[in-house]
Simulated assay, not measured.
Amino acid sequence: MSRFVAITAVRDFEGRVRQAIAGALHGELQTLSPEVLSGGPDDVFRQLNGAPPEVLILGPGVTPESALKLATVFDLQYPEISLLLIAEPSPDLILRAMHSGIRDVVTPEIDVNELRVLLERACLASASRRRGMAPAADPGQSRGRVVAVMSPKGGVGKTTVATNLAIGLGKLAPMSVVIVDLDLQFGDVASGLLLEPEHSITEAVRGAASQDSMVLKAFLTVHPAGIYALCAPRTPAESDYITADHVSQLINQLAGEFKYVVVDTAPGLGEHCLATLELATDGVWVCGMDVPSIRGLRKCFSVLKELQLLPAGRHTVLNFADRRSGISVQDVEATIGVPIDTVIPRSRTLPFTTNRGIPVLQGATRDAASKGLKKLVDRFDPKWVSTTHNQQHRRVVVS
């Protein structure tokens, strides 16, 4: 599918659009000649590849009159498509463009970074309109799955698992996945995804964003793999201003907008983590193959069982699995009292991809670790759920 369509005869502008999309926005660009406008919207659609685009760019080479005429028809027939006009703005043109349904009017000299932000916002607006036009869903299925990725201790690869899970889910549901970095003091989701976010969770939980989901989306960062990210505060001190109530409100908002909300929590069972568990549909517990990590997970399960905060969906991940550690998978299961659902073997590839900021599931690397992560992602595929009939924990481990 061509997510972006540009109607322009200026090669330099087309090149800037491609630069803005490459490595930052999910989707492809199709370019059409301004001559296509002579036949109206039907002729435009006949030349498109695949499904209708999300963003239509009326670029240099298109006369303002032709652009406004086309925009008027598109606004009536295809309101879910965001229209951008590239022309020298004037008060009169901006007013007429607004009446025609054009989202933004910007100068042809716009640089690549500003164009990237413009396209990102246009995509968010298009996605919101499409959801608004969709038939009302069943009340029981209107919210997305909230996946809390947790571990009682640090250093077990929790963030690596969370980022790869989000990337994998993005392949199942493009542009319908958001990962939230809830390790508010030292979160590494931005580093793990090679992102330089303009905004952080601090801004997203306060002000207008906490009341309006459309405003909230403006604080999300788009990843090239087709997911969104809400990154940790810039400084540890900012975490003091984020309460458990803020976290609950944020997750409720995101669950109403996205199919999957992956929450990378801080180690332990702090107030933010408990607030997440109260809303989580699934818990992914990450455990290392060492005694302190295993015992910590056993205590964690015991506490959460007492608090009645164990989510309905449970997924236990054994990371850094190595036969030479002196501990077997069966030993771990007997200690924590639940089956291990996913085993991720110790791998040289995984730390390398983490350090590069490119999750292993984003690339084409094939090794045992990537297979383990893919198995974890498959557990959230509706097809997998329907074939297993929720019997993934039938096996009983005797401690």
Rank of each mutant, 00 (worst) to 15 (best):
I294T: 01
D245P: 03
P34I: 05
G23M: 01
V146C: 03
L70M: 15
T8L: 01
V117G: 06
Q77N: 03
A24H: 12
V303P: 05
G144Y: 02
N49D: 09
S66T: 08
L350S: 02
G268D: 00
V396W: 13
H26Q: 14
L48K: 03
R46G: 14
G154Y: 06
T265Q: 03
I251K: 04
A162I: 10
S325F: 00
S347V: 00
G207Q: 09
C287R: 02
M214P: 03
T276P: 11
L119N: 09
L165M: 06
K69D: 11
R145N: 12
A127Q: 14
V177T: 09
G168S: 13
M175P: 07
E196P: 04
E203A: 12
V317M: 00
R96F: 09
I340W: 06
V398P: 02
V396A: 15
A137N: 06
S248E: 14
K374M: 12
G59V: 02
G101M: 07
M133T: 01
E109D: 15
N319E: 01
Q330M: 07
R16N: 14
L269N: 02
T221E: 14
S200E: 11
T349K: 03
L95N: 14
S142Q: 15
L373Y: 03
P233F: 08
E306Q: 15
T388I: 13
A6M: 11
R3S: 12
P108D: 07
M175A: 10
R394Q: 11
L95F: 15
E120W: 12
A71C: 05
D42Y: 12
V156P: 00
S399Q: 12
I81K: 02
R346V: 00
G363C: 03
G226D: 06
G101L: 11
D282C: 08
C287D: 01
D188M: 04
L76T: 14
K374I: 12
D104N: 13
D183N: 15
P41N: 07
I167L: 07
Q330F: 05
Q392R: 05
P174W: 05
R234T: 15
S126I: 01
S142T: 12
P233T: 07
H246T: 03
I336S: 01
T159N: 03
P152F: 05
